[in-house]
């Protein structure tokens, strides 16, 4: 019998000690693993409304046939090359393997035509050392929204800086126009538009797009993953939407209404049943205490 008890204890111990190990063996965060995984690192540049420059790094490690995000890796960001004096800051990857850094503008120095950013992982316990760099040109994406002769016009302008530091138009760049919706961006045209020689695109803004209760819309111009400029977007709020009118007549008390508009008969019915049945249950629990009370009286 003792052997059986010992076997069971061994099995339980085996489960406790080995199951968690098996669980984390699949994970790329296992710090006890000595062999480092092959890593892939992707660096993206995003600029919003010409006032924030954001570097986004995605670090992935090879697990089996797949690449999965590496969590908790410290990524160093640098200007031009990965040396301490060029450091822009560090950021740690999240559970998807993504680390984000908002570039401190004071560290960029004087205006120039191009910027080279470097992301680097060194001495990580999980993945091998990696570096990735991206070079982007200085850019300026703007959008004006005007109503001319009852026609709503969107004028998008994209400019860049040449080697001499002069501002020049950026021609032949694909720009897309969107309207912000609750769960994403609604494209206003199926194909992207190209900037002309003046770096401009002029579009007519469609009517009858629903806005908020005041008719506000957020119009978004975007350049996606351009080889020179990276990702750019420019957002502007304007009262060009159809104001949302909430029809309070729809808030009638029906079975298919929201929870605030449940029919009274249902509220009364369900609550009556609940009170009735749970009242009886409470009565029975009270009776259980009466049984105990009688028992105590006898002892006394």
């Amino acid at each position: 019998m003792n052997n059986i008890r010992a076997s069971i204890q061994y099995l339980v111990l085996l489960c406790i000690t080995h199951l968690p190990g098996f669980a984390t063996a699949q994970s790329v965060n296992d710090t006890t693993t000595t062999a480092k995984s092959e890593a892939s690192i992707e660096l993206l540049y995003t600029e919003s409304n010409n006032n924030s420059k954001i570097l986004t790094v995605t670090v992935k490690a090879k697990v089996g046939e797949d690449y999965v995000g590496v969590e908790g890796a410290v990524v160093g960001f640098f200007m031009t090359e990965a040396i301490p004096e060029n450091s822009l800051g560090n950021s740690t990857t999240n559970d998807k393997g993504v680390a984000v850094l908002v570039v401190p503008l004071e560290k960029l120095g004087a205006l120039r035509a191009n910027y080279t950013f470097v992301a680097s992982i060194e001495n990580n316990t999980t993945v091998e050392d990696q570096q990735e760099e991206i070079t982007v040109s200085e850019s300026n994406l703007n959008m004006s929204l005007e109503e001319v002769d009852s026609v709503r016009q969107v004028v998008i302008t994209l400019q860049t800086t040449d080697a001499a530091g002069n501002t020049i138009p950026a021609a032949d760049v694909e720009v897309r126009l969107f309207v912000q919706r609750m769960f994403g961006l609604l494209p206003l045209s199926s194909d992207p538009q190209l900037t002309d020689e003046q770096g401009e695109i002029t579009l007519e803004f469609p009517a009858a797009i629903p806005g908020d209760t005041a008719g506000n819309l957020v119009v978004v111009a975007k350049v996606d993953e351009h080889e020179l400029f990276g990702n750019l977007d420019f957002r502007k709020k304007i009262r060009w939407g159809v104001p949302l009118v909430i029809d309070h007549n729809k808030n009638i008390r029906e079975l298919w209404s929201s929870r605030e508009n449940a029919p009274y008969y249902l509220i009364i019915l369900v609550n009556s049943m609940l009170i009735g049945i749970w009242g009886v249950i409470a009565y029975i629990v009270f009776q259980v205490f009466r049984i105990r009370k009688l028992g105590r009286q006898k002892v006394a």
Partner: peptide, 25 residues
């Protein structure tokens, strides 16, 4: 868990009645 059960007539009466109510409920 025995709640001081001592086969008292009062206890038996409460218990039987409670079981019957629950059986219906």
């Amino acid at each position: 868990l025995a709640l001081g059960w001592s086969n008292l007539p009062g206890q038996e009466k409460i218990l039987r009645r409670s079981e019957q109510i629950l059986a219906v409920l």
